[in-house]
Design a binder for these strands. Structure first.
Lengths: 192, 192
DNA sequence: GTTTTTGTTGATTGACGAGTCAATCAAAGT
DNA sequence: ACTTTGATTGACTCGTCAATCAACAAAAAC
């Protein structure tokens, strides 16, 4: 039965199962066995491909980050004005992909996990830096010096809205997006 | 050796040790044994007073929430104008007490924990509702209808700044407070 | 046709941790 | 004196789970 070239398929399935499992359990206290079962393989195979459980967790995080990064890049590609660039970042941040309950749960847990895990922290730092850099870049032509400051505020607001969505009632990307946009508009009105 | 009336002392010590331990480990994957050792007692005693580990965790969360609530109430007591009320809430939210690394870590972890635990979720809901209610109440005379909307934005911003502090460089309450105040000022300028 | 490589698992190990229990010690009550 | 009650623990049970291993199946390579 064993066809060749299973590795990428299994890896993808395991990563996907990991995210789903984290979403269901609501924490990183998730067993390799259950992840493997969900992916339709034995727990031994998960270890075969990923080594330690930690590596599987990091791979899942990397996958989520990569998906988000792709989304941002894609949205940014079609934006010409600075204002549109910011809107694109917001839109990508609250896009359906990153907004599925399981993905939100995974994000949230990785945030926490990054506190005690070097690899996770590095990954998250990359995301943080990139988000800030993108925001600063788009804000500079609009508000000059204040760009760095405003960027940090917007980034915090994005994160905060994310978390509230994870806890309170069902996720609502549009509303979160609109909320950040409203704050942004006020920033720009003042700077004008 | 056994004096009477140890219960409240032990409970307090265990709760304190729990928070410290969570802060050190960076997650809720903390053993009862280590908490107990830190509090200078045996793990059996921790179980004797709190039953399950979960109850100990919830007690720690309740303690943090209560401390925060006291801070808000105290700050609110000396505020006369609506604007001062909001400032008081912000000041309490980013006060030194709630801003110690271990406490931040605990907050963060409880946020996640609330996803899968009913008791934790209830506690967090109380905090959320109270924060929102306080903000709405203070905002109403300033912005009328828009109070609910602005309150949610501010609440999210507070949470977001909190998290960033937990991950990025050392906590800086003043700066976080100023950042929210800046957004608030813009809200009020528009409404005026 | 044999060897190597890749895919896969059941069974097992070893560690660790939550929760229980029986027992001990000392103070307070009678 | 003696009995109840609160404080406290070491030792033990029981379950869980990550990680390993030996083994097998099938395709590819030689």
């Amino acid at each position: 039965m064993p066809k060749l070239g299973m590795e990428p398929i299994r890896r993808a399935a395991l990563v996907k199962a990991t995210i789903a499992e984290i979403g269901e359990v609501g924490s990183l206290d998730v067993t390799v066995s259950r992840i493997a079962r969900r992916a339709g393989v034995s727990s031994a195979l998960a270890h075969h491909y990923f080594g330690a459980k930690e590596d599987l967790l990091v791979a899942a995080m990397r996958h989520i980050l990569a998906t988000y990064g792709r989304g941002v890049r894609a949205a940014l590609a079609g934006a010409t004005t600075p204002r549109a660039r910011i809107a694109a970042i917001l839109h990508a941040s609250f896009a359906a992909d990153n907004f599925e309950p399981a993905v939100i749960a995974a994000w949230l847990n990785f945030y926490v996990h990054a506190q005690g895990n070097a690899a996770a922290r590095r990954l998250l730092n990359v995301y943080h830096r990139r988000l800030r850099s993108n925001l600063v870049h788009a804000l500079r032509p609009l508000v000059g010096e204040a760009a760095a400051d405003h960027a940090e505020t917007l980034a915090a607001l994005i994160d905060g809205l994310y978390i509230r969505q994870a806890l309170d009632a069902g996720p609502d990307g549009q509303r979160a997006e609109a909320r950040v946009a409203a704050v942004l508009d006020r920033m720009l009105e003042i700077a004008r």
